[in-house]
Computed example of a mutant assay.
Amino acid sequence: MTPKTEAELADIIATAHAPLAISGGGTRGYSAEGARLSVSGLSGIELYEPGALTIVAKAGTRMSEIEAALAKENQRLPFEPMDHRALLGTDGAPTIGGVIAANVSGPRRIQSGAARDYMLGVRFVDGAGTVLKNGGRVMKNVTGYDLVKLMTGSYGTLGVLSEVALKVLPRTDVVASIMIDGLSDAEAVRAMSDALGSPFEVSGAAHMPRGPEEKPVTMIRIEGFEGSVKYRSGKLVDLLAGYGAARVETDPEKTDAMWTGIRDVAPFHGVEGDVWRVSCKPSDGPQLSAALSATDTLFDWGGGLIWALTPEGTDARASLGAYDGHATLVRASAETKARLGTFQPQPAPIEAITAGLRAKFDPKNILNTGLMQPRQEG
C-alpha cells in the first residue's frame, strides 16, 4: 500500500485491523509484522525559505531532492544523516521521513546535535487514523506535549509521519581534518577528548583502529571560514603534539570522502559479519571495545559511539555486560535479530512508560508491531 495523500494514509490506518509494516525508502533493513505501508507516495518539498532557514517536506520526499534544494542555496541539514544502503546491502532511496522516524544523525552530532534538535513541526497519523500536528514551520516556543520530539526516533510505532518541518543551516566555507597515526584506542579517546574539550569548535572526532592503510588513524574535524580554520587547526596540532606528529588535510574532495566514510561506516561495507552500534560514555569506549572481541571497530563522537563488526550470531550485549549505554543490532540475519532483538531491552520502569505511550497513540497495536518491543524469551 502506497497512499498518495495524507487523507488516504489516514483512511488506510483507520480501517486497518491487522498490523502494518511502515516504511519509507526501504533502506534501513528493519522488518515489522504485517502488510507493508509505504509513505514514499507522500513526496515533495512543501515550503523552503532559505532566509528563514526553514524547509517543510512530505515524509516520503527523497533525501537527494532535499539535499539538492539546500545545496543550491549553500545550505545543509547540519545533523549529517547517514546513508545505510552500502552497510546493509539495501537499495531504494532514503527519505526525510525515515531519517526523522529513526533520528538518524552523523558525526557532526557531537557539536551540532541530532536530527531531533532541528525539528520544528510534524504532521502524522496515529494508530486510530487521526491526523495530528504539532509545532510549526518556524522556530518558536510551544506548550503542552512536545510531539515533535516524541515522534523523532519512534520508528513509526506511535504514528506515521506525513510531513516534517526542519531548521537548516548554511554550509561552511572550509573543512580541515587533523589526523594522527598509530594511537591505541585508549590514546585516541584521550586525544579526541582533549580536542573536544578545547575552545576550537571541533565538529567531528573519530578513530579507526584499522585505517585505510591497515594502521590506526585518529581524525579531528573543524569547519568554518578559511582564516579561522587555519588558526584553529594550528592550535589543535599544538594541543595534540604529545600524541605524535599530526598532519592536516584540507582538500575538499578528500575531507568529504573521509567524513562520508565515517558517517556511513565505510570500513564495514561488503564485509561479512554482524554490525552493532554501541552508545556509551567516551571514557568507557576502549574497555567496551575490548570486551566485544570484534573483528573491526570504528569510534565516532569522540568514543561515545562504537560501531563493531562481530562474527555472525554474536550476542554483543552479553559480552558488554552492565554499563551506562545501549547496543543496537544494526545488521544481522533474521534469525539473529529474532533471537537477540534489534534494540536494547529497556529497564522495566521505562518500558512501562513506553508501553503506555504505545497504547495511547496506537490503541489497535498495528503500527510496526514488535519492532521495538522486547524480544520473546524461549
Rank of each mutant, 00 (worst) to 15 (best):
P311R: 05
D324Q: 14
T250P: 01
R76F: 03
A246S: 07
G370N: 05
V148C: 15
Y231V: 10
F124S: 09
S279H: 14
D256T: 14
D146W: 08
M208I: 07
T260L: 14
K72H: 08
M139H: 01
W301D: 10
P267M: 06
L367R: 07
G153R: 12
Q111I: 02
M119P: 05
D126W: 11
P212E: 14
A115L: 08
S154N: 11
N368D: 06
A322P: 04
G129T: 09
L87F: 04
A93W: 02
H84A: 13
D146Q: 12
P107C: 01
P267G: 12
K58F: 13
A59V: 00
V39C: 12
I66Q: 05
V168R: 08
R28F: 02
M219F: 12
K149Q: 12
A355W: 00
V56L: 03
N365W: 00
N103D: 15
M372A: 11
V164R: 08
E312A: 14
L183S: 11
G26C: 06
T314M: 04
Y243M: 12
T5N: 03
H269V: 14
G261M: 12
V122K: 11
T295F: 03
S23M: 13
G182W: 03
D238W: 02
A71K: 14
P170G: 10
V175C: 11
S112N: 12
D185C: 14
P311Y: 07
G92V: 03
L320E: 00
P212I: 12
A176E: 08
M179N: 15
L329N: 06
H17V: 07
I366R: 11
E6F: 04
G92T: 07
A359W: 04
G135T: 00
T310C: 07
L20R: 13
Q287Y: 08
M119Y: 04
A332M: 01
D181N: 14
L9R: 14
A176N: 10
E214G: 13
A294F: 08
E163Y: 00
V104N: 07
